[in-house]
């Protein structure tokens, strides 16, 4: 990315309570300790990028936020509600948190429109016409309204991922989680998805994004979090982190990924 890229204006609201609060979160897979005393505050409107080598726990971290993975110690508080075994609390949280997966996970037996309207109709009890209008609005926003009646198998990877973003947005979430959204895409399709995500950031959405796309991090992120071996090693503004890494581990990681450029 060129050095003259403009940074997105920060949308962080410092007066509001944190959107996501992780307090000494620990998670084990069997006996493997994959998240170690992770503490993280994400303010409303903040955009956080999480990066790190594979096996560092970054995907596990965001999957804990909507309880696709269950943490064993510590607290996770999303929009004031704590994540626990309480099912009703979990349902509330999942309505407010949207997720975009690396492998898109669109429902292949439903049309694009049906993919987007399914949850609003059956979880938010929205009438069908309203849901369809909402879906078309978001499909227009991700710039593929003409594909509404097609099936996922007929779309390219980049288009599918944009639909996945629209599908998550149709639930009008307050927080969006992205788990390596561009890692499964061919290079020429990465840009269209990143542009969509940048557009989303411009609306002030709280975003946590696990990604290797450093250019995106520089443009959009208010904060970058570097994880390694299950713990948060360093955080800070993107420029500061990439140009002035403090720890050896971050220096090693940056040298490895920047080698490709």
């Amino acid at each position: 990315m060129s050095a003259t890229t403009e940074y997105l204006a920060s949308a962080v609201r410092v007066d509001a309570p944190p959107a996501i609060l992780l307090d000494k979160v620990n998670k084990w897979f069997g006996s493997l300790h994959v998240l170690r005393d992770v503490c993280l505050n994400v303010a409303t409107g903040e955009r956080v990028v999480v990066c790190g080598p594979s096996g560092s726990g970054k995907s596990t971290l965001i999957r804990c936020i909507n309880r696709l993975e269950i943490h064993q110690e510590g607290r996770i508080i999303v929009n004031g509600t704590e994540l626990s075994d309480d099912i009703r609390a979990l349902d509330e949280i999942r309505r407010e948190v949207g997720m975009v997966f690396q492998s898109f996970n669109l429902f292949p037996h439903l049309t694009i429109l049906e993919n987007c309207t399914l949850a609003p109709i059956w979880v938010r009890n929205m009438p069908k016409q309203e849901a369809e209008a909402l879906a078309m609005e978001y499909l227009t926003r991700v710039r593929i309204p003409e594909q509404a009646k097609k099936y996922p198998g007929q779309l390219s990877g980049g288009q599918q991922q944009r639909v996945a973003i629209a599908r998550a947005l149709c639930m009008k979430p307050k927080i969006m989680l992205f788990d390596e959204p561009t890692s499964a895409l061919d290079p020429e399709m990465i840009k269209e998805v990143l542009d969509t995500m940048i557009g989303l950031a411009e609306t002030g959405m709280t975003m946590i994004c696990v990604t290797h796309e450093m250019g995106f991090a520089r443009t959009v992120a208010d904060r970058v979090v570097f994880m390694d071996q299950g713990e948060i090693v360093e955080t800070g503004a993107p420029t500061q982190l990439f140009e002035n890494p403090q720890t050896d581990r971050l220096k090693l990681f940056l040298s490895q990924i920047l080698r490709g450029h």
Binding site: W28, S31, H33, Q72, E73, D86
Partner: peptide, 14 residues
């Protein structure tokens, strides 16, 4: 590996 130093706690039921 620091990820193998501690074991998970037990969860009480509510």
């Amino acid at each position: 590996d620091p990820r193998q130093l501690r074991l998970p706690p037990k969860r009480p039921i509510r």
